[in-house]
């Protein structure tokens, strides 16, 4: 299959590559760039494990082709923090907001993007914001608590 050249920014670094047009962005990040923190849980856009940020917005990298990311600024879980944990990650840790960890990168990035838009959310808004990310271990309650705590941490840091 003919390959296509793409150029994009991933976690602050310029990346150029030749990819098959049918390759998903998730597979590109994982298999071509080795960024395996992005997980695949359903590959049909429901579970949210593959969530990454594109130009600041949370998107499902399994539903997008790598070629569609041409010129985009992509943030994956690997790029969220370079020294220690980001306050959102810290909050998930402190409040036991993860168990098996598989949904966690998507959950953390979804919460991160949400809190940028809505720095002081109610619990109901948090639950709504997380509605597109499935977790099979935690029952969500500690994740809600963690996101609320992260909001407080981020507010304190401002």
């Amino acid at each position: 299959m003919a390959r296509v050249s793409i150029g994009l920014t991933v976690n602050g670094q310029a990346v150029s590559a030749e990819v098959e047009p049918r390759m998903t962005l998730a597979d590109f990040l994982r298999d071509e760039l080795g960024l395996t923190g992005t997980k695949l849980g359903c590959e049909h856009g429901v579970c949210g494990a593959c969530t990454v940020l594109i130009d600041g917005a949370a998107v499902r990298s399994c539903l997008m082709l790598a070629v569609q990311a041409e010129g985009a600024d992509v943030l994956t879980i690997e790029g969220l923090s370079h020294n220690g944990l980001h306050p959102v990650q810290e909050a998930y840790w402190e409040h036991h907001g993860l168990q098996c960890g598989f949904c966690t990168p998507g959950m953390v990035l979804t919460a991160y993007a949400f809190l940028q838009e809505r720095p002081d959310p109610s619990d109901e808004e948090i639950r709504e914001a997380l509605a597109g990310n499935l977790c099979r271990c935690t029952g969500y309650q500690n994740i809600v608590v963690a996101v609320r705590a992260a909001a407080e941490k981020l507010a304190g840091a401002r």
Partner: peptide
Amino acid sequence: VKRVEDPRFLTGEAKYLADIT
């Protein structure tokens, strides 16, 4: 006690089966 295993899951460094090549 906070879980000692958590940081590697939070940063995406944890390697599941599909992540091993």
